[in-house]
């Protein structure tokens, strides 16, 4: 039995195919753009082709992420909180607290032994605690998204970016640039500002070890280091490249649970599984 998890995020759409033993068969990622339905379907189909499967070979599909409702071949949607909790547990079964930092949202959740979310907090509508904040900061200084990681590694001494608002933070970036501060130090300051917000969220939900960090921003290793330093404890990060796929993995895992519950052991057409 094959299941799929589709995470239609604000920046990227991620797809994971999983077999009945819980092995990730393949995964795919594309820019979400503005045609969410098409991108979700194409990413799914590309993944299927990679492992020589047809859509009918997939028993159950769960969509998650901000654009989950646009996925037109899903069997079910789940929130990123539920999918993220499963995904974090998939990589680190002893996870008690999940921090998910994506393109538009930052979420901290406390999960129980059965992967149920017991409490959660999200950043409000402000982009200051999200990947969009970092992207905007980089872009202002003339760097692309891909250059954020290498740029941070050039930092010798971060400068404080205290803004809790992405718009105000931009003013601070301008000030720092006019003072001749190296862009790497500014970038590192931005990520530390973001870290402060994320640690506050985790404290509010009374987070407990083990902490697992997921989401696109965790592909910058400085982010995990900064969280670890501020929390004063070890943190888990899925293997490089997997942190972005944690919600899709969680969705695929949930799809497996649901398919088993419904007795879908054989081949079905995606989207008409029940």
């Amino acid at each position: 039995m094959i299941t799929a998890g589709i995470d239609v995020g604000s920046t990227y759409t991620k797809v994971v195919l999983m077999d009945s033993e819980g092995n990730v068969l393949t995964r795919g990622i594309r820019n979400t753009g503005f045609q969410l339905t098409r991108v979700a379907r194409e990413t799914f189909e590309t993944c299927l082709e990679e492992v020589n499967l047809a859509p009918g070979d997939c028993s159950y599909v769960i969509a998650t992420g901000i654009g989950r409702h646009q996925c037109d071949f899903k069997d079910l949607t789940v929130t990123e909180l539920t999918a993220g909790a499963r995904g974090a547990k998939f990589y680190f079964p002893r996870t008690c607290t999940v921090l998910d930092i994506g393109g538009q949202t930052m979420k901290a959740s406390r999960v129980d032994a059965s992967s149920k979310v017991e409490a959660f907090r999200m950043n409000d509508k402000c982009a200051a605690g999200t990947g969009a904040f970092l992207e905007k900061t980089a872009r202002y200084m003339g760097y692309t998204c891909k250059e954020i990681g290498p740029l941070m590694e050039t930092s010798r001494q971060s400068v404080p970016i205290s803004g809790v608002c992405a718009v105000f933070a931009e003013s601070e970036v301008i000030n720092q640039l006019s003072l001749g501060t190296p862009p790497g130090d500014i970038m590192q300051g931005a990520i530390e500002s973001l870290t402060t917000r994320s640690v506050q969220l985790m404290k509010r939900i009374k987070g407990q070890p083990e902490y697992t960090l997921i989401g696109g921003l965790l592909r910058f290793k400085n982010m995990a280091l900064a969280v670890k330093a501020q929390l004063g404890t070890e943190v888990n990060v899925p293997p490089y490249g997997s942190c972005q796929f944690a919600c899709a993995v969680g969705a695929a895992k949930l799809a497996q649970i649901r398919a088993n519950k419904l007795g879908l052991t054989g081949q079905q057409n995606a989207g008409v599984a029940v």
């Binding site: 079910l76 789940v78 909180l81 539920t82 149920k116 979310v117 949930l254 649970i257 649901r258």
Partner: peptide, 13 residues
């Protein structure tokens, strides 16, 4: 939306 989805997920899972 988040509350309703969480409610539904609690039933489904």
């Amino acid at each position: 939306e988040l509350q309703v989805e969480t409610f539904a997920e609690n039933i489904l899972f």
